[in-house]
Write a protein that binds this DNA or RNA. Structure first.
Length: 309
RNA sequence: CGCGGGGUAGAGCAAUUGGCAGCUCGCAAGGCUCAUAACCUUGAGGUUGUGGGUUCGAGUCCCACCCCCGCAA
Protein backbone atom coordinates (compact mmCIF):
# COMPACT_ATOMS: atom_id res chain seq x y z
CA UNK A 1 0.00 0.00 0.00
CA UNK A 2 1.20 3.45 -0.83
CA UNK A 3 2.65 5.27 2.13
CA UNK A 4 1.65 8.88 2.49
CA UNK A 5 3.40 11.47 4.60
CA UNK A 6 1.05 14.37 5.24
CA UNK A 7 2.10 17.99 5.76
CA UNK A 8 -0.53 20.46 6.96
CA UNK A 9 -1.64 22.83 9.67
CA UNK A 10 -5.04 24.43 9.07
CA UNK A 11 -8.60 23.25 9.63
CA UNK A 12 -8.85 22.52 5.97
CA UNK A 13 -5.68 20.43 6.11
CA UNK A 14 -7.17 18.47 8.96
CA UNK A 15 -10.31 17.76 6.97
CA UNK A 16 -8.34 16.45 4.02
CA UNK A 17 -6.16 14.38 6.31
CA UNK A 18 -9.24 12.71 7.66
CA UNK A 19 -10.55 12.00 4.19
CA UNK A 20 -7.22 10.57 3.04
CA UNK A 21 -6.93 8.37 6.07
CA UNK A 22 -9.96 6.39 4.95
CA UNK A 23 -8.28 5.31 1.74
CA UNK A 24 -4.55 5.44 2.26
CA UNK A 25 -1.85 4.51 4.69
CA UNK A 26 -0.65 7.60 6.53
CA UNK A 27 2.83 6.92 7.84
CA UNK A 28 3.16 10.25 9.54
CA UNK A 29 1.93 13.81 9.86
CA UNK A 30 4.09 16.90 9.87
CA UNK A 31 2.55 20.05 11.28
CA UNK A 32 3.59 23.33 12.85
CA UNK A 33 4.66 23.64 16.44
CA UNK A 34 2.09 24.51 19.07
CA UNK A 35 1.52 28.22 19.26
CA UNK A 36 0.40 30.62 21.91
CA UNK A 37 -2.91 31.94 20.75
CA UNK A 38 -5.77 34.07 22.01
CA UNK A 39 -5.94 36.85 24.57
CA UNK A 40 -4.54 34.67 27.29
CA UNK A 41 -1.80 33.24 25.14
CA UNK A 42 -2.83 29.67 25.71
CA UNK A 43 -0.80 27.14 23.84
CA UNK A 44 -2.79 25.28 21.30
CA UNK A 45 -1.84 22.61 18.86
CA UNK A 46 -2.78 22.88 15.23
CA UNK A 47 -6.06 21.40 13.95
CA UNK A 48 -4.01 18.85 12.05
CA UNK A 49 -2.14 17.80 15.18
CA UNK A 50 -5.45 17.31 16.97
CA UNK A 51 -6.98 15.16 14.24
CA UNK A 52 -3.77 13.22 13.77
CA UNK A 53 -3.72 12.53 17.47
CA UNK A 54 -7.29 11.26 17.39
CA UNK A 55 -6.52 8.99 14.48
CA UNK A 56 -3.37 7.72 16.14
CA UNK A 57 -0.85 8.90 13.57
CA UNK A 58 2.76 9.70 14.25
CA UNK A 59 3.02 13.48 14.53
CA UNK A 60 6.14 15.54 13.89
CA UNK A 61 6.30 19.19 14.87
CA UNK A 62 9.74 20.29 13.73
CA UNK A 63 10.76 23.82 14.53
CA UNK A 64 12.66 23.81 11.29
CA UNK A 65 13.00 21.46 8.37
CA UNK A 66 16.48 22.65 7.62
CA UNK A 67 18.36 20.45 10.05
CA UNK A 68 19.62 16.88 10.09
CA UNK A 69 17.21 15.77 12.75
CA UNK A 70 14.10 16.66 10.77
CA UNK A 71 15.60 15.16 7.67
CA UNK A 72 16.37 11.88 9.36
CA UNK A 73 13.01 11.65 11.05
CA UNK A 74 11.22 12.10 7.77
CA UNK A 75 13.56 9.79 5.96
CA UNK A 76 12.88 7.07 8.50
CA UNK A 77 9.18 7.13 7.67
CA UNK A 78 10.03 5.90 4.19
CA UNK A 79 7.07 7.57 2.52
CA UNK A 80 6.21 7.00 -1.12
CA UNK A 81 4.44 10.27 -1.58
CA UNK A 82 3.95 13.55 0.26
CA UNK A 83 0.67 15.38 0.39
CA UNK A 84 1.16 18.99 1.40
CA UNK A 85 -1.83 21.17 2.24
CA UNK A 86 -1.51 24.57 3.88
CA UNK A 87 1.49 23.54 5.89
CA UNK A 88 2.65 27.11 6.31
CA UNK A 89 6.37 26.64 5.85
CA UNK A 90 8.61 26.24 2.87
CA UNK A 91 9.73 22.66 2.48
CA UNK A 92 13.38 22.45 1.40
CA UNK A 93 14.30 20.52 -1.70
CA UNK A 94 16.27 17.89 0.18
CA UNK A 95 13.14 17.02 2.12
CA UNK A 96 10.99 16.96 -1.00
CA UNK A 97 13.51 14.58 -2.55
CA UNK A 98 12.62 12.02 0.10
CA UNK A 99 9.24 11.48 -1.52
CA UNK A 100 9.88 8.63 -3.93
CA UNK A 101 6.94 9.41 -6.11
CA UNK A 102 6.82 13.12 -5.55
CA UNK A 103 5.05 15.65 -3.38
CA UNK A 104 1.51 16.62 -4.22
CA UNK A 105 0.08 20.02 -3.35
CA UNK A 106 -3.32 21.65 -3.61
CA UNK A 107 -3.56 25.29 -4.62
CA UNK A 108 -6.94 27.03 -4.72
CA UNK A 109 -6.48 28.99 -7.93
CA UNK A 110 -6.19 28.39 -11.64
CA UNK A 111 -2.42 28.16 -11.84
CA UNK A 112 -0.33 29.76 -13.16
CA UNK A 113 -2.63 32.58 -12.08
CA UNK A 114 -2.57 33.64 -8.45
CA UNK A 115 0.47 31.89 -7.16
CA UNK A 116 1.18 32.68 -3.56
CA UNK A 117 -0.41 32.72 -0.13
CA UNK A 118 -3.74 34.50 -0.68
CA UNK A 119 -5.35 33.31 -3.90
CA UNK A 120 -8.89 33.16 -2.59
CA UNK A 121 -8.83 36.70 -1.26
CA UNK A 122 -7.04 38.01 -4.33
CA UNK A 123 -9.55 36.74 -6.86
CA UNK A 124 -12.37 38.33 -4.88
CA UNK A 125 -10.47 41.57 -4.50
CA UNK A 126 -9.92 41.70 -8.23
CA UNK A 127 -13.53 40.91 -8.99
CA UNK A 128 -12.73 37.75 -10.92
CA UNK A 129 -15.65 35.77 -12.25
CA UNK A 130 -14.05 32.37 -12.02
CA UNK A 131 -11.36 30.56 -10.11
CA UNK A 132 -10.59 26.95 -9.36
CA UNK A 133 -8.41 24.34 -7.77
CA UNK A 134 -5.13 23.00 -9.05
CA UNK A 135 -3.48 19.79 -7.93
CA UNK A 136 0.20 19.82 -8.74
CA UNK A 137 3.57 18.31 -8.07
CA UNK A 138 5.77 20.46 -5.91
CA UNK A 139 9.12 21.77 -6.94
CA UNK A 140 11.46 24.19 -5.29
CA UNK A 141 9.60 27.30 -6.41
CA UNK A 142 6.30 28.41 -4.94
CA UNK A 143 3.27 27.01 -6.74
CA UNK A 144 5.46 26.41 -9.73
CA UNK A 145 5.25 22.65 -10.24
CA UNK A 146 3.67 20.54 -12.92
CA UNK A 147 -0.10 20.35 -12.98
CA UNK A 148 -1.83 17.04 -12.41
CA UNK A 149 -5.42 18.18 -12.44
CA UNK A 150 -7.32 21.44 -12.53
CA UNK A 151 -10.98 22.35 -12.30
CA UNK A 152 -12.80 25.68 -12.63
CA UNK A 153 -15.69 27.08 -10.68
CA UNK A 154 -17.67 30.27 -11.06
CA UNK A 155 -17.62 33.07 -8.53
CA UNK A 156 -20.95 34.60 -7.60
CA UNK A 157 -20.90 38.44 -7.68
CA UNK A 158 -21.90 38.63 -4.03
CA UNK A 159 -19.88 35.72 -2.80
CA UNK A 160 -17.74 36.33 0.25
CA UNK A 161 -14.48 34.71 1.25
CA UNK A 162 -16.08 32.15 3.56
CA UNK A 163 -18.50 30.99 0.89
CA UNK A 164 -15.91 30.76 -1.86
CA UNK A 165 -13.46 29.08 0.43
CA UNK A 166 -16.04 26.49 1.32
CA UNK A 167 -16.73 25.75 -2.34
CA UNK A 168 -13.02 25.49 -3.10
CA UNK A 169 -12.42 23.21 -0.16
CA UNK A 170 -15.18 20.88 -1.22
CA UNK A 171 -13.77 20.80 -4.70
CA UNK A 172 -10.23 20.32 -3.40
CA UNK A 173 -11.24 17.34 -1.36
CA UNK A 174 -12.93 15.75 -4.33
CA UNK A 175 -9.98 16.41 -6.62
CA UNK A 176 -7.22 15.25 -4.32
CA UNK A 177 -8.99 11.98 -3.63
CA UNK A 178 -9.39 11.50 -7.35
CA UNK A 179 -5.89 12.59 -8.31
CA UNK A 180 -3.77 10.50 -6.01
CA UNK A 181 -4.91 7.06 -7.19
CA UNK A 182 -4.77 8.11 -10.81
CA UNK A 183 -1.34 9.59 -10.41
CA UNK A 184 0.02 6.54 -8.65
CA UNK A 185 -1.44 4.44 -11.40
CA UNK A 186 0.41 6.52 -14.00
CA UNK A 187 -2.81 7.66 -15.59
CA UNK A 188 -1.87 11.31 -15.37
CA UNK A 189 0.82 13.09 -17.35
CA UNK A 190 2.10 16.05 -15.36
CA UNK A 191 1.77 19.22 -17.38
CA UNK A 192 4.25 22.06 -17.20
CA UNK A 193 2.73 25.41 -16.27
CA UNK A 194 2.86 28.27 -18.70
CA UNK A 195 5.20 30.32 -16.60
CA UNK A 196 4.89 33.41 -18.78
CA UNK A 197 1.34 33.85 -17.59
CA UNK A 198 2.06 33.52 -13.91
CA UNK A 199 0.66 36.10 -11.49
CA UNK A 200 1.32 36.36 -7.78
CA UNK A 201 -0.55 37.35 -4.67
CA UNK A 202 0.86 38.56 -1.39
CA UNK A 203 0.54 37.86 2.28
CA UNK A 204 -2.41 39.73 3.74
CA UNK A 205 -1.92 42.03 6.69
CA UNK A 206 -4.28 43.79 9.03
CA UNK A 207 -3.73 47.03 7.15
CA UNK A 208 -5.21 45.54 4.00
CA UNK A 209 -8.58 45.67 5.72
CA UNK A 210 -8.52 49.43 6.17
CA UNK A 211 -11.09 51.15 4.02
CA UNK A 212 -10.04 53.95 1.75
CA UNK A 213 -13.33 55.75 1.19
CA UNK A 214 -11.98 57.55 -1.82
CA UNK A 215 -12.10 54.32 -3.74
CA UNK A 216 -15.19 53.44 -5.78
CA UNK A 217 -17.91 51.63 -3.88
CA UNK A 218 -17.48 48.57 -6.07
CA UNK A 219 -13.85 48.25 -5.02
CA UNK A 220 -14.70 48.63 -1.36
CA UNK A 221 -17.33 45.97 -1.80
CA UNK A 222 -14.77 43.61 -3.31
CA UNK A 223 -12.45 44.37 -0.43
CA UNK A 224 -15.27 43.41 1.93
CA UNK A 225 -15.88 40.17 0.06
CA UNK A 226 -12.19 39.30 0.02
CA UNK A 227 -11.37 40.02 3.64
CA UNK A 228 -14.66 39.24 5.37
CA UNK A 229 -13.14 36.25 7.16
CA UNK A 230 -9.89 38.01 8.07
CA UNK A 231 -8.90 40.73 8.76
CA UNK A 232 -12.32 42.15 7.92
CA UNK A 233 -12.70 45.69 6.69
CA UNK A 234 -12.54 48.60 9.06
CA UNK A 235 -12.43 52.33 9.38
CA UNK A 236 -12.17 54.71 12.29
CA UNK A 237 -14.86 56.69 14.11
CA UNK A 238 -14.03 59.01 17.02
CA UNK A 239 -10.47 57.71 16.93
CA UNK A 240 -11.68 54.19 17.58
CA UNK A 241 -11.53 51.24 15.26
CA UNK A 242 -14.88 50.57 13.67
CA UNK A 243 -15.18 47.20 12.06
CA UNK A 244 -17.61 47.10 9.19
CA UNK A 245 -18.98 43.62 9.46
CA UNK A 246 -21.65 43.49 6.81
CA UNK A 247 -22.31 45.78 3.90
CA UNK A 248 -24.07 45.86 0.60
CA UNK A 249 -23.82 47.96 -2.51
CA UNK A 250 -26.62 50.47 -2.69
CA UNK A 251 -28.15 52.32 -5.56
CA UNK A 252 -28.56 55.49 -3.52
CA UNK A 253 -26.64 58.19 -5.25
CA UNK A 254 -25.15 60.73 -2.93
CA UNK A 255 -24.27 63.80 -4.86
CA UNK A 256 -21.39 66.01 -3.92
CA UNK A 257 -20.76 64.18 -0.70
CA UNK A 258 -17.36 63.82 0.84
CA UNK A 259 -16.15 60.21 0.79
CA UNK A 260 -16.49 58.59 4.21
CA UNK A 261 -19.46 60.71 5.28
CA UNK A 262 -22.33 58.83 6.91
CA UNK A 263 -25.90 59.52 5.85
CA UNK A 264 -29.27 58.22 6.83
CA UNK A 265 -31.61 57.58 3.96
CA UNK A 266 -34.99 55.89 4.45
CA UNK A 267 -33.75 54.23 7.60
CA UNK A 268 -30.68 52.92 5.85
CA UNK A 269 -27.19 53.85 6.89
CA UNK A 270 -25.24 54.91 3.84
CA UNK A 271 -21.59 55.86 3.55
CA UNK A 272 -20.38 57.85 0.60
CA UNK A 273 -17.48 56.40 -1.34
CA UNK A 274 -15.34 57.95 -4.04
CA UNK A 275 -17.84 56.78 -6.58
CA UNK A 276 -21.21 55.48 -5.45
CA UNK A 277 -21.99 54.47 -1.90
CA UNK A 278 -22.14 51.60 0.53
CA UNK A 279 -24.93 50.62 2.88
CA UNK A 280 -23.76 49.43 6.28
CA UNK A 281 -25.80 46.61 7.76
CA UNK A 282 -23.70 45.47 10.70
CA UNK A 283 -20.74 47.00 12.48
CA UNK A 284 -18.67 46.76 15.61
CA UNK A 285 -16.95 49.47 17.57
CA UNK A 286 -13.72 48.74 19.39
CA UNK A 287 -14.54 47.07 22.70
CA UNK A 288 -18.16 46.51 21.80
CA UNK A 289 -19.99 43.60 20.28
CA UNK A 290 -21.30 43.42 16.75
CA UNK A 291 -24.59 45.17 16.22
CA UNK A 292 -26.87 46.21 13.41
CA UNK A 293 -26.50 49.70 11.98
CA UNK A 294 -30.01 50.67 13.05
CA UNK A 295 -29.31 49.71 16.66
CA UNK A 296 -25.92 51.33 16.57
CA UNK A 297 -27.28 54.77 15.76
CA UNK A 298 -29.79 54.59 18.63
CA UNK A 299 -26.91 55.00 21.01
CA UNK A 300 -24.57 56.97 18.76
CA UNK A 301 -26.60 59.90 17.53
CA UNK A 302 -23.64 61.74 16.10
CA UNK A 303 -22.77 58.83 13.84
CA UNK A 304 -25.05 60.24 11.17
CA UNK A 305 -23.19 63.09 9.55
CA UNK A 306 -19.81 62.03 10.88
CA UNK A 307 -16.95 61.26 8.61
CA UNK A 308 -15.19 57.94 8.75
CA UNK A 309 -11.50 57.88 8.06
C1' C B 1 1.13 38.57 35.34
C1' G B 2 1.48 41.37 27.18
C1' C B 3 -1.73 46.43 26.22
C1' G B 4 -6.65 48.45 26.36
C1' G B 5 -12.33 49.19 26.27
C1' G B 6 -16.80 47.43 28.47
C1' G B 7 -21.12 44.89 31.71
C1' U B 8 -27.27 50.18 33.61
C1' A B 9 -35.10 48.03 31.06
C1' G B 10 -35.95 43.30 25.40
C1' A B 11 -31.91 46.23 22.06
C1' G B 12 -28.29 50.34 21.33
C1' C B 13 -26.51 53.99 24.80
C1' A B 14 -26.66 58.38 28.83
C1' A B 15 -26.25 59.71 34.01
C1' U B 16 -21.49 66.76 36.26
C1' U B 17 -17.87 67.11 42.32
C1' G B 18 -21.11 60.50 45.27
C1' G B 19 -27.48 63.16 45.89
C1' C B 20 -35.00 60.91 43.18
C1' A B 21 -31.63 55.81 37.35
C1' G B 22 -32.69 58.49 32.06
C1' C B 23 -32.70 58.83 26.19
C1' U B 24 -33.80 56.49 21.55
C1' C B 25 -35.78 52.11 19.51
C1' G B 26 -38.73 48.04 20.52
C1' C B 27 -42.97 46.08 23.34
C1' A B 28 -48.37 46.56 25.41
C1' A B 29 -53.11 49.21 25.38
C1' G B 30 -56.05 52.98 23.13
C1' G B 31 -56.71 56.72 19.27
C1' C B 32 -56.01 58.75 14.28
C1' U B 33 -55.13 57.76 9.04
C1' C B 34 -56.27 56.37 1.73
C1' A B 35 -51.24 55.96 2.90
C1' U B 36 -45.03 54.82 3.75
C1' A B 37 -40.74 51.25 9.23
C1' A B 38 -46.34 57.46 9.66
C1' C B 39 -48.52 60.26 13.77
C1' C B 40 -50.91 61.19 18.84
C1' U B 41 -52.00 59.46 23.99
C1' U B 42 -51.08 56.22 27.91
C1' G B 43 -48.43 52.20 30.01
C1' A B 44 -45.30 48.04 31.36
C1' G B 45 -39.80 46.74 32.39
C1' G B 46 -34.18 47.69 36.78
C1' U B 47 -31.61 44.19 43.27
C1' U B 48 -27.06 49.12 37.55
C1' G B 49 -22.51 41.40 36.18
C1' U B 50 -21.35 38.87 41.43
C1' G B 51 -19.54 39.32 46.56
C1' G B 52 -17.55 42.44 50.16
C1' G B 53 -15.90 47.55 51.92
C1' U B 54 -16.08 53.20 52.70
C1' U B 55 -20.38 56.67 53.42
C1' C B 56 -26.08 59.81 56.15
C1' G B 57 -26.32 58.28 51.00
C1' A B 58 -22.76 54.32 45.78
C1' G B 59 -24.31 53.14 38.72
C1' U B 60 -20.38 56.57 40.45
C1' C B 61 -15.01 55.65 45.27
C1' C B 62 -11.91 50.97 47.25
C1' C B 63 -10.89 45.35 47.16
C1' A B 64 -11.84 40.47 45.12
C1' C B 65 -14.19 37.51 41.48
C1' C B 66 -17.16 36.27 36.84
C1' C B 67 -18.29 37.45 31.79
C1' C B 68 -17.94 40.12 26.77
C1' C B 69 -14.88 42.69 23.34
C1' G B 70 -10.63 45.61 20.58
C1' C B 71 -5.17 45.30 20.00
C1' A B 72 -1.25 42.01 20.03
C1' A B 73 0.19 36.89 18.88
Amino acid sequence: MTKILFFGTSDFSAKILKALSNQFEIVGVVTQTDKAVGRKKEFRQSPVAIIAGELGFKVLKPQSLKNEEALNQIKALNADIFVVIAYGKIIPQNILDLAKQGAINIHPSLLPKYRGPSPIQSVLLNGEKETGVTIMLMDQLMDHGKILLQEKINIDPDETHAQLEDKLYTLSEKLILKTIPQYLDNQITPLEQNHDQATFCKIISKEDGKIDWIKPAAEIYNQYRAYSSWPGIWSTYNDQILKIKKITLTSHLLEQSIPGTVYKNENRIIVAAGKGSIEILELQLEGKTTTTATNFILGHKDFIGSRLA
